[in-house]
C-alpha cells in the first residue's frame, strides 16, 4: 500500500489559504484521502461520515478510522455549523483490531460473543 504523508506534516506546511497545497493534507492515511476531497464532498451535500466513507474509502483501511474519523467529523461540523457532538460518528464494526484469518481458525466456534484480544492482531485463545 502506498505510504501517505501524515496530516500533521501537511498542516505544518501551512496549507490554509495556499491554493493547491490543501490536496497535500492527508486525512485518511490508510486510504490516501485528502482534505480537499473531503471538503469537496461536503460541499456537494454528502454531510455524513457514512456517505463520505463509502465514496472515498475514508476510514475503511487497516486502522478503521482511528485517525480520520475525528477529522472528518470536525470538517462536517465546521461546514454545517453543527456542534461536533451532534454529528453522527457512524458505525464502528468489529473486529476492533485486525485479526489474522489463519489465527481465527483456532477460535472458539460456539461462543458467538467471544471478543478478540491480544497484540499484533492474533486471536488469543
Amino acid at each position: 500500500m502506498a505510504c501517505a504523508k501524515p496530516a500533521s506534516e501537511g498542516a505544518r506546511g501551512g496549507c490554509e489559504g495556499e491554493a493547491g497545497a490543501r490536496d497535500l493534507v492527508v486525512i485518511c492515511r490508510c486510504e490516501d484521502v485528502t482534505l480537499d476531497e473531503i471538503r469537496d464532498l461536503i460541499a456537494r451535500g454528502y454531510t455524513t461520515v457514512e456517505e463520505i466513507k463509502r465514496i472515498t474509502r475514508c476510514g475503511m483501511g487497516p486502522c478503521q478510522g482511528r485517525t480520520c474519523r475525528q477529522l472528518v467529523l470536525a470538517e462536517i461540523a465546521r461546514a454545517t455549523g453543527k456542534d461536533i457532538a451532534s454529528v453522527a460518528p457512524g458505525r464502528f464494526r468489529p473486529p476492533t483490531k485486525p485479526v489474522r484469518l489463519g489465527g481465527a481458525v483456532a477460535g472458539a466456534p460456539d461462543s458467538d460473543n467471544e471478543g478478540i484480544e491480544g497484540d499484533g492482531g492474533e486471536q488469543v485463545r
Binding site: P62, P94, P98, V99, R100, G102, A104, D110, D112, E114
Partner: peptide, 26 residues
C-alpha cells in the same frame, strides 16, 4: 465472531494462503 471462525476454516481449506491475511472489518 462465530462467522469469522467458520469463514476462516472454510476459506483456508479452499485458498490456504488467505489464512495469512488480516480481517479488518466484518
Amino acid at each position: 465472531w462465530k462467522f469469522v471462525v467458520e469463514m476462516a476454516r472454510e476459506i483456508t481449506r479452499v485458498l490456504p494462503p488467505v489464512g495469512n491475511l488480516k480481517v479488518v472489518r466484518q
